[in-house]
Design a protein around this nucleic acid. Structure first.
Lengths: 133, 133
DNA sequence: CTGCATCCTGTGAGATACTG
DNA sequence: CAGTATCTCACAGGATGCAG
């Protein structure tokens, strides 16, 4: 596949396809939850503990979306106290690899990006704020 | 690298690394602009035309962020009328490949996801709205 | 234990109009 | 042509409290 064809995959139908998937995994918690569920079934509270910083609300909402999209399976046991287990589906597991490609890129380039940001801020065209000295 | 190690890359420091890069490319337009700039230098207006639906404001803001992060270079020509050209840097181009991995996943699974969504909506536990018939 | 409803706030992002 | 400024609205997401 040529580079041109590759970018056309992203640009595609005006970006609708790629945007669909980005909307799916970019909502701050999705990817983290998928990664956390990889290789392990977890119940709600355990998941809540293993994803630091997430609120119950967002955990519920994100799991719902993942379940709706068939990326996560939800199994409720009719017990007392109630028990619900979440696990990745095959589709959910298949997301890990491409997500890893992105994570790899991030790790590889994050320092360069941070440096570029710092340099940009330093030499930035400040509208009216002049240099400190 | 084992699957476990792979997911640890995502989960990593509580997701900070992966979140950093997601925050970068998930702002609705970034990836589309990067893909559009792949293999071609474009000026502001041309870019505006080639990314359907984007507003001038968002194009400006997104380009600014990309420039700041060293993913896109901005070249202004002191001419009349003014001319500014945008192009990918090496770092920017390197984002194409992992983005493609994601786009590939999206294309491969989008129909399954859509189907799952439809099924979920159909058989969903509606709080009070009963079945149509 | 699991999860939903409510309130509240910050930010993303469109529309529009104006400047160099 | 290439932006900037402002106004506005919608929604993401945190905190809290309630229910099965």
């Amino acid at each position: 596949m040529s580079d041109y064809e590759r970018t056309c995959m992203i640009r595609g139908d005006g970006g609708r396809t790629i945007r669909t998937i980005l909307d799916r995994i970019c909502d701050k918690w999705t990817l983290l939850i998928v990664a956390t569920l990889d290789e392990q079934r977890l119940r709600f509270t355990d998941l809540h503990r293993q994803v630091p910083g997430i609120s119950q609300r967002m955990l519920t909402l994100t799991l719902r979306n993942l379940e709706r999209d068939g990326l996560v399976s939800r199994t409720a046991y009719a017990e007392v106290p109630p028990r619900v287990e979440y696990a990745l589906t095959a589709t959910g597991r298949s997301l890990i690899a491409p997500a890893l490609a992105l994570a790899g890129w991030a790790i590889e380039h994050i320092s360069h990006i941070e440096a570029s940001r710092t340099a940009y801020e330093a030499s930035a065209r400040k509208p009216s704020a002049a240099q400190p000295d």
